[in-house]
C-alpha cells in the first residue's frame, strides 16, 4: 500500500526555528548565523566585532564547537553574554540546540546575537536556527573556487566576508575569481573584504550589522 506524505524533511526544525525567531523578535535581537570552514577566523572575527561594536550595539554570542570550550574561553575577556554549545559529533547547530541555549542568555541585554556555527561548509546551510541572516566567511587560504563547490552555503547567505586579505600576496587566491564565482551562485550576495589581523574592513562589517539592526527595528538601538 502506498501512502502520500509530502512532508518537508526539515519541517520539525523549521518549526522550532520559527519559535526561536519569535523570542528574538520579542527581545529586539538581530540574530546572525555565522558559518565557515574550520579555521576561517570566526572566533577572531567575534573578538574584533566585540571591540568594534562597543558603544554601538550590545553583542551576545552562542558558539558551537564539537568538543571543546576554547571558543567561549577566548571570548570571556570581552565580558559578553556567551553560551557555549558542545555538539558532540554533530557537524552543525540546529534550531533545537539554539532553543536549549536561550535560558542561559539574558537576551534583554543583547542587541545583536551572533551564533558561531560549527566549522563546516555543508550541513550548517541546511538548518535554520531562527536567525535574521546567514553570514558566510571565506578565508583566502581556502581557495577562490569554494562558492562553486558549496553553492547552497553561499546561496543561503546574505553577506559574504572574505577574510585574511592580509595574506593575499602569499596565495594564488584571486579576489576577482572568488567574487565572480560567489555572484554566479548567488547574484544578490553582498561581499565585504576583511582582515581580522590588520582590522581592514571591520568598520564596514560593523556598519552592515548596524544597518541590519536599523532596518529591522527602525532605530540605532533601543533606549
Amino acid at each position: 500500500m502506498k501512502i502520500n506524505v509530502m512532508t518537508d524533511v526539515l519541517e520539525a526544525n523549521d518549526r522550532i526555528a520559527a519559535a526561536n525567531r519569535q523570542v528574538f523578535d520579542r527581545y529586539r535581537n538581530l540574530v546572525i548565523n555565522l558559518m565557515s570552514s574550520p579555521g576561517a577566523g570566526k572566533t577572531t572575527l567575534l573578538e574584533k566585532t566585540a571591540e568594534a561594536l562597543k558603544g554601538k550595539l550590545r553583542l551576545g554570542v552562542i558558539t558551537g564547537d564539537i568538543e571543546t570550550t576554547r571558543d567561549s574561553e577566548r571570548l570571556q575577556k570581552y565580558q559578553l553574554p556567551v553560551v557555549q554549545l558542545t555538539t558532540g559529533s554533530a557537524c552543525h547547530l540546529d534550531a533545537n540546540m539554539i532553543a536549549s541555549a536561550l535560558p542561559h542568555l539574558d537576551l534583554s541585554q543583547v542587541d545583536t546575537l551572533i551564533v558561531e556555527n560549527v566549522g563546516n561548509l555543508v550541513c550548517p546551510a541546511e538548518f535554520k536556527i531562527g536567525e535574521d541572516f546567514k553570514v558566510m566567511m571565506l578565508s583566502v587560504t581556502e581557495g577562490d573556487e569554494k562558492p562553486l563547490k558549496y553553492p547552497l552555503m553561499f546561496r543561503e547567505s546574505a553577506l559574504l566576508l572574505i577574510n585574511k586579505i592580509d595574506l593575499l600576496q602569499y596565495t594564488n587566491f584571486s579576489m576577482e575569481v572568488a567574487k565572480a564565482n560567489a555572484k554566479k551562485v548567488s547574484p544578490d550576495l553582498e561581499i565585504i573584504d576583511i582582515s581580522c589581523v590588520t582590522g581592514e574592513g571591520i568598520p564596514s562589517w560593523v556598519e552592515w550589522l548596524s544597518r541590519c539592526y536599523r532596518e529591522k527595528f527602525g532605530t540605532v538601538r533601543r533606549a
Partner: peptide, 27 residues
C-alpha cells in the same frame, strides 16, 4: 549555476526548483 535567461539573457532569475527536500510517499 548560470542564472541567465536563455531567451532574453536577463540575469534577474528566480529559482523555482532545486531546493526542495521532501518525503513524497511511503510504501
Amino acid at each position: 549555476y548560470r542564472y541567465i535567461c536563455p531567451k532574453c539573457q536577463s540575469e534577474d532569475v528566480q529559482t523555482v526548483s532545486g531546493t526542495e527536500l521532501r518525503v513524497k510517499d511511503i510504501e
